[in-house]
């Protein structure tokens, strides 16, 4: 049975290999997860890999909005992320959800910016209610 390593160590190694262009490491990771029975932790591994990549300059940002984004808005978002994180490359993953009503929720590994109308209404309902 493979010795269990901490998730951080594994994902850091995988991120490094991915940056070097070695895609075979993905299969190795899958095999490792199966062997150590950590399939359920896959999402966490992916997050940690994204986090390691972000540290090394490759940022993957999740953007959630009520409507689809225009090219110009995407450009603004890219520039914003690059400025905030010092990233060398930014990849956007778009999610359109009408329940956010308006504004955007921008999530990069370890950080989040939420200016959606939905969040503001939740704040009104919860935090101000208790004041």
């Amino acid at each position: 049975m493979a010795r269990r390593l901490s998730r951080r160590v594994v994902t850091s190694f995988v991120a490094e290999r991915l940056q070097e262009g070695d895609k075979s490491v993905v299969k190795q990771l899958a095999a490792y997860l199966v062997t150590t029975r950590q399939i359920r932790m896959l999402a966490l591994y992916v997050r940690d890999i994204e986090s390691s990549l972000a540290k090394k300059g490759d940022v993957i940002a999740d953007v959630t909005t009520a409507f689809s984004l225009s090219a110009e808005t995407k450009k603004h978002i890219n520039a914003f992320v690059a400025a905030e994180t010092g990233a060398l490359s930014v990849s956007l993953r778009e999610h359109v959800k009408s329940e956010v009503l308006g504004g955007l929720r921008l999530h990069i590994p370890g950080k989040e910016l939420d200016t959606t109308v939905q969040r503001q209404l939740t704040t009104l309902r919860t935090q101000l209610k208790k004041a």
Partner: peptide, 19 residues
């Protein structure tokens, strides 16, 4: 006053998720 004072702009905070 509560509604007017409601902050419309958020901060780019460090976040985690509940496991």
């Amino acid at each position: 006053q509560a509604i007017e004072g409601l902050e419309t702009q958020g901060d780019f905070d460090e976040t985690g998720i509940v496991l």
